[in-house]
Simulated scan of single mutants.
Amino acid sequence: MKPILYNKFRSIKSYNSRIRFLVFHYTAGNFSNSLSTLTGPNVSAHYLIPDMTDQSYLEAGYREQEVFNLVDEQHRAWHAGVSAWGSRTSLNDTAIGVEIVNLASFKDGVFTFPPYHPAQIEAIETLALNILGRYPDIAPTQVLGHSDISIGRKSDPGPRFPWHALYLKGVGAWFDETTQQTFQDQYTQTAMPERAELLRLFKTYGYDVCGAVNDQGFTQLVRAFQLHFRPERYDGVMDVQTAANLAALVSKYFA
C-alpha cells in the first residue's frame, strides 16, 4: 500500500470543530491541592490558572503568573460533570474547561468568595481571547461559568469573577445598559413577567429550566443567573432588576 496522502487535498469548509463552549471554574483549593485533583483519576481541565500569591505555588518554585495546559484541547477533559446549555448536555464533550485557583468555600450554610488576583484576571483574558480566536463557533453566550451549566450543584466561578470586565475586552456576553433600563422601567411601572414567561426567557438564553418546576428549583435557576449577570446580589429572588437583565440579554442575542 502506498503512503496515505494527508496533505494533498484538504477540506476547508465542510467541517467544524467539536468545541462549542468555554467554561470557567474555581478550584476551591490551593495550587498544590488543585494540581493533585486535576491530574488525578477523577477530575481534569484543559487549563489551570494559579494564584501567584499562593504559598504552595511559591513553594513549587514559581514566582510569576503561569498558565498550565493540563489536557490537550482536542481531548475531552472531565470538568463539567452533569451539565446542560441550550440543546446540548454533557458539556465535557464540547467544552474547554479552565480552572482558576481560588479558595472559595462553603461552611455552615455560608459561601465565601475571595477576589481573584489581578494577574489571574489578566491571564484569564489572554487565554480566553486566544481560545475564542481559534474556535469561532464559541458564541459570546457560550462563554459560561460552571454555575450556569450545572444549576443548583455549582457556584463557580462565583460572583467575584469579572464577567463584565471580560465582556468589555471581547470575552463573553453582557446586556446593553440602555435596553436593560427600558425593561426595568417597564417592569417597575407595570409588573414583572409571569414565571412562565421568565422561564421562556431563561430557556431562550440557554439555561436548563427542567429543574425549575417548583419554587426551590426556580430559586436555584435565578441564583445561577445572578451569579453571572447580577453579582451584587445572588439570593435567588427574582426582582425587577434581575428580570430586566435577563430580558435585555435575550433581546440582544436572540432578537
Results as ranks from 00 to 15, higher is better:
10 R>W: 02
34 S>K: 00
59 E>Q: 15
60 A>E: 08
51 D>F: 03
5 L>Y: 06
62 Y>F: 15
36 S>N: 14
67 V>I: 15
63 R>I: 09
38 L>Q: 03
33 N>V: 12
76 R>L: 09
92 N>P: 02
52 M>T: 09
71 V>H: 00
13 K>H: 11
23 V>L: 10
80 A>Y: 03
77 A>L: 04
82 V>P: 03
26 Y>R: 14
65 Q>R: 06
44 S>M: 01
28 A>D: 10
9 F>S: 07
92 N>C: 04
21 F>T: 02
6 Y>D: 10
7 N>Y: 10
29 G>Y: 04
12 I>H: 08
73 E>G: 05
14 S>Y: 10
94 T>R: 08
81 G>T: 06
88 R>T: 02
51 D>P: 03
29 G>W: 05
10 R>M: 10
7 N>T: 12
63 R>N: 13
31 F>K: 02
6 Y>L: 14
16 N>A: 10
46 H>R: 04
34 S>W: 01
90 S>L: 12
50 P>D: 08
69 N>V: 00
19 I>E: 03
22 L>T: 05
66 E>H: 13
5 L>T: 06
89 T>S: 12
7 N>A: 11
76 R>I: 15
58 L>E: 11
1 M>Y: 11
43 V>A: 11
78 W>M: 13
17 S>H: 12
21 F>W: 07
25 H>P: 03
56 S>A: 08
24 F>G: 07
3 P>W: 05
9 F>V: 14
52 M>F: 07
27 T>M: 08
38 L>K: 06
73 E>H: 03
61 G>D: 01
18 R>H: 12
85 W>V: 01
1 M>Q: 10
8 K>L: 14
92 N>W: 04
83 S>N: 10
69 N>L: 08
47 Y>E: 02
11 S>D: 13
19 I>A: 02
74 Q>G: 15
39 T>I: 02
6 Y>T: 09
50 P>Y: 10
62 Y>G: 07
89 T>E: 09
20 R>L: 13
58 L>W: 04
28 A>G: 01
38 L>W: 09
81 G>P: 05
92 N>Q: 06
67 V>M: 05
19 I>M: 02
12 I>N: 08
24 F>S: 05
42 N>P: 00
18 R>S: 11
62 Y>V: 04
50 P>K: 07
14 S>Q: 11
16 N>I: 00
74 Q>Y: 07
31 F>Q: 03
79 H>P: 00
9 F>Q: 10
71 V>E: 00
26 Y>Q: 12
67 V>T: 14
64 E>R: 15
